[in-house]
């Protein structure tokens, strides 16, 4: 999809960012991704104006007489939840939480992980040993226990749960990036660069990092889904958003046992998470193709 577009020779180089954006806009998938992200961001920011109802309002006619939630219908487009609240409104408000977790917290985690992995993998030695053993330690770290402790000490908030996720979720990224960097650092072209007297910073930036972009994109985008769900587990233990605040993760988490009797409560928020993650993936893939040095001048 991408190779044909990459120009084999760029005669002029206008501003780099401008080029990137222009190339991005020429890719239909990237544009789709941008549109989805824009929709979610707009919904999150302007939730009070966009949402049809108050997300916390438990409607008297939002439940059947027996107390079952209502399937999607004219009044409630996505149906109601177990308390008779409008699911669509809860999704729109929940986008705020989920963006902070899936994009910000997850982004920080991936950034830390990549940094630790690259430094440990490239420099090895005692720095690498310390960093990687610390990674091992953090991997065994009982995050759920930490959640319980923090829940009892602090007032629950979105930022605490975001911090915990950023603190514990970087370790896997670090392991994988470390392994890849370790291998890259021994390749011939890196040796060649070194012997030509290139600085470590230059080698890392121009030769190692570009090779890691695709891995980083994979972890960053798949991480959106998993962190959004992890937020729900941690909030369940009391550190994150508390009821009645909605998040995409907690809507799924609270309702997953009802997936047979009220499928809309699980599959609609699930689809929202998948769409958001896919949107970032489209965007990430496109950016990687555009920025990838090994792609420049090739159309293989």
């Amino acid at each position: 999809m991408s190779e044909l577009i990459a120009p084999s020779a760029a005669p002029r180089r206008p501003t780099r960012a401008g080029t990137v954006i222009r190339r991005l806009l020429r890719r239909p998938l990237a544009v789709t991704g941008l549109v989805i992200i824009a929709i979610v961001v707009i919904a999150a920011v302007f939730a009070p104006w966009v949402a049809p109802y108050d997300p916390g309002e438990q409607f008297f006619d939002g439940l059947t007489l027996e107390g079952a939630p209502l399937p999607p219908n004219g009044a409630f487009l996505f149906g109601t939840d177990l308390l008779g609240r409008d699911l669509l409104s809860r999704l729109i408000f929940g986008a705020q939480t989920s963006l902070v977790i899936g994009v910000v917290a997850n982004g920080i985690a991936v950034f830390i992980g990549a940094l630790v992995g690259i430094v440990a993998g490239y420099f090895r030695g005692w720095i690498g040993t310390i960093l990687m053993r610390f990674t091992d330690l953090m991997m065994s770290f009982p995050a759920l226990l930490l959640a319980i402790v923090l829940a009892a000490i602090f007032k629950p908030s979105l930022w605490i749960v975001a911090m915990v996720i950023a603190m514990v979720n970087w370790v896997q990224v670090a392991r994988v990036i470390y392994t890849e960097t370790r291998s890259l650092a021994e390749r011939d072209f890196i040796e060649a660069e070194r012997s030509l007297g290139a600085s470590s910073a230059r080698i890392l930036w121009s030769h190692i990092l570009p090779h890691l972009v695709s891995t980083i994109v994979v972890w960053a985008t798949l991480g959106i889904s998993t962190t959004v769900l992890l937020e729900a587990t941690l909030s369940f233990l009391g550190i994150g958003v508390q009821p009645p605040t909605a998040s995409w993760g907690n809507i799924i988490f609270e309702n997953q046992t009802y997936f047979a009797s009220a499928p809309w409560l699980v599959f609609i928020p699930g689809a929202a998470i998948i769409l958001l993650a896919l949107a970032f993936n489209f965007l990430g893939d496109a950016l990687r193709d555009i920025l990838d040095p090994t792609q420049q001048g090739r159309s293989a």
Partner: peptide, 22 residues
Amino acid sequence: GTWVDSSLMVVSFVGVSAPQFV
């Protein structure tokens, strides 16, 4: 770059995002 690639990508994201219980 084919539809196979795209479908497998969607399947991957669905798998990663699915709740264990379901």
